[in-house]
Computed example of a mutant assay.
Amino acid sequence: MPLQVESLSYATGGRTLVDAVTLHAAAGETVGLVGPNGSGKTTLLRCVYGTLRASAGRVLVDGAELTGAKERARRIATVPQDGQTGFELTVREVVAMGRSPHKRFWEPDTAADERLVTEALARVGVLDLAERAFPGLSGGERQRALVARALVQQPGLLVLDEPTNHLDIRYQLDILTLVRGLGTTNLLALHDLNLAAYFCDRLYVLHGGAVVASGPPADVLTAGLLAEVYGVSADVGVHPATGAPTVTYLPGPETATALSRPAGERKSSTI
């Protein structure tokens, strides 16, 4: 299910947080959003999945704008950074909420629904936590449960905001491998540039709410761009086993130099 974001902006309190962003993800493609804190990644994702209303521009899913909340929930599943339900629900009950867009109000779960929930819990490695209270889980356990909830929603588009937050390295790799293998179109924000380089087909770099570079990871992740956008020195090579770009951060004067320049003097490049 393809995604098209066209000239999307979001402003609040006199500040523009997302500035005329255009991006696309082809059906089945995994596209990453990267950029420093405050660059607009989470705000952009919220506009895509509908919790924020864009000030300008539009979002097309499978060629159409989604108008109703239920229609949007049938097409798009979301995994927030660190979601809480606000209720003392079990993990199984939280994951089962992913079936609600496909059901009438108060319609009970069927045997097929319960099977989907159990399969999703097993796929993300939390089946043994199914009867635990969701608020009592660790951050990593909650994150895996939220991915399971997205799976049972059976979306065409999966939107994930830092899905590897709080996860140890094994589950970071497991979750992103799982997402890549779902067959969905995936749009995800990531801080870890090496994970983004390995798991994403293409990257969009946000800085100050705008796209400053886009393309395949090997084209986007350059030492020059990292110096300009992140204000750090880095060596970017090619990993001999994976063929993906690998970023090694270096101590040095570039960090202090880049951060000392006024924001208006920091040039950005679009690929």
Rank of each mutant, 00 (worst) to 15 (best):
D174M: 10
D174C: 09
D174A: 08
I175C: 07
L176S: 14
L176H: 06
T177Q: 15
T177F: 06
L178P: 03
L178Y: 10
R180P: 02
G181H: 14
G183M: 15
G183R: 12
G183N: 14
T184F: 15
T185Q: 14
T185C: 15
T185K: 13
N186D: 15
L188Y: 02
L188A: 13
L188H: 13
A189S: 15
L190I: 08
L190S: 12
L190W: 08
H191W: 14
D192C: 08
D192H: 03
D192W: 11
L193F: 00
L195V: 06
A196N: 09
A196T: 14
F199I: 07
C200L: 01
C200K: 04
D201A: 12
D201W: 06
R202C: 00
R202N: 03
L203S: 07
Y204R: 02
Y204V: 05
V205N: 04
L206H: 01
H207W: 04
H207C: 10
G209N: 02
G209H: 02
G209M: 06
A210W: 03
A210F: 00
V212M: 01
A213Y: 01
A213G: 05
A213W: 01
S214T: 12
S214V: 04
P216Q: 09
P216R: 14
P216I: 05
P217W: 00
P217K: 11
P217R: 10
P217I: 03
P217F: 03
A218W: 00
D219L: 03
D219C: 03
V220P: 03
T222S: 01
G224R: 13
G224F: 04
G224K: 04
G224E: 13
G224D: 12
L225G: 06
L225T: 07
